[in-house]
Amino acid sequence: MEAPGEITFQQIRERAYDLWERNHRPNGFEIEFWLMAERELKAERDGKRDRPGVNQVNNSSA
């Protein structure tokens, strides 16, 4: 069972494949696309974690 917020092998594989296709399917860049996919997914996950929730009040505007 995976932990909440854990990035799975399947998610990385799908993102790497999408990146590879969007870059015209170059040969020999498997590792680069895999690492790029991991970085993107981690940034998305961490960005969601850092955003305040809908029910939280922003006191700095008072």
Rank of each mutant, 00 (worst) to 15 (best):
P26V: 04
Q56W: 04
P52E: 00
M36K: 13
K48T: 01
K42W: 11
L19M: 15
V57N: 01
D46E: 14
E2H: 10
R51D: 05
Q11F: 06
Q56S: 14
G5R: 05
G5H: 09
R25C: 11
R25I: 14
V54S: 10
K48W: 04
Q10M: 07
E40S: 02
M36D: 03
W34Y: 09
I7L: 13
E30V: 04
Q11R: 10
V57R: 07
E32S: 10
G47V: 02
S60W: 12
F9A: 11
F33H: 00
L19P: 04
R49K: 10
L35E: 14
W34K: 07
G53H: 09
N59K: 11
K42M: 06
N59I: 05
E44P: 07
M1D: 12
A62H: 09
Q10L: 04
I12A: 11
E14A: 08
T8P: 03
A62E: 05
N23T: 01
A62G: 11
G53A: 08
P4V: 12
R51W: 05
F9S: 11
A43K: 01
G47K: 03
V57W: 02
G5A: 07
E32Y: 11
H24Q: 13
L35Q: 13
Q11P: 15
M36N: 02
R39E: 13
W34G: 08
R45A: 08
R45M: 08
R51A: 07
K48L: 04
R22V: 02
L19F: 15
F33T: 00
F9V: 09
E30C: 04
